[in-house]
Amino acid sequence: MKFLSHRLLIYIFCSLLAACSTTQPGAGGSRVGFTESGKASFYADLHQNRKTASGELYQHGLKTAAHRTLAFGSSVRVTNIQNGKSVVVKINDRGPFVRGRIIDLSKSAFSSIGNTRSGLIDVKIEVIR
């Protein structure tokens, strides 16, 4: 009986944990207007044609990005704080998983607002759709 109760508690805990990890903030509700500031990086060449977390293939030439929590398909305006240039990207991947970084941009998206030689830029992001 004690074993069964313990297994039941583990099952409930795991179910709750799974539900939390698969529910995206904004899923089932809009996050339009959400803003965040921090560092942006871009995908290395080795990611070309590899699957993203959404199942799409990563392509350097597309304006896409990875964010830890925003819903797949969200449109996000990314603005380079230093020069004021901005680009609109579609969230189709998860990441970045490096402290201090808030978004990973495709190479073309990064190039349109900053120089890839810098590696990182300070940005503000805003969910627009």
Rank of each mutant, 00 (worst) to 15 (best):
V32H: 12
V32F: 09
G33C: 07
G33N: 08
F34R: 01
F34K: 02
F34G: 00
F34C: 00
F34Y: 10
F34S: 01
T35A: 03
T35R: 09
T35Y: 01
E36K: 15
E36C: 12
E36D: 15
E36V: 09
S37A: 13
S37D: 12
S37P: 05
G38T: 03
G38C: 08
K39F: 07
K39V: 03
K39N: 11
K39D: 09
A40H: 04
A40I: 03
A40R: 03
S41K: 04
S41D: 05
F42D: 01
F42N: 02
Y43L: 06
A44M: 08
A44Y: 08
D45S: 07
D45K: 00
D45G: 00
D45C: 00
L46F: 12
L46E: 14
H47G: 01
H47D: 08
Q48A: 08
N49E: 11
R50V: 02
R50M: 06
R50W: 00
K51H: 13
K51L: 14
K51Q: 14
K51R: 15
T52R: 05
A53D: 06
A53E: 10
A53V: 05
S54E: 07
S54T: 06
S54V: 10
S54P: 06
G55D: 05
G55P: 02
E56K: 12
E56R: 11
E56I: 05
E56H: 07
L57C: 02
Y58T: 06
Y58H: 08
Y58D: 04
Y58K: 03
Q59Y: 01
Q59V: 09
Q59E: 09
H60Q: 07
H60N: 13
H60Y: 01
G61Y: 08
G61A: 10
G61D: 14
G61T: 10
G61M: 06
L62Q: 15
L62A: 15
L62M: 14
L62R: 15
L62K: 15
K63H: 15
T64V: 13
A65C: 14
A65G: 12
A65W: 11
A65S: 13
A66Q: 10
A66F: 08
H67S: 00
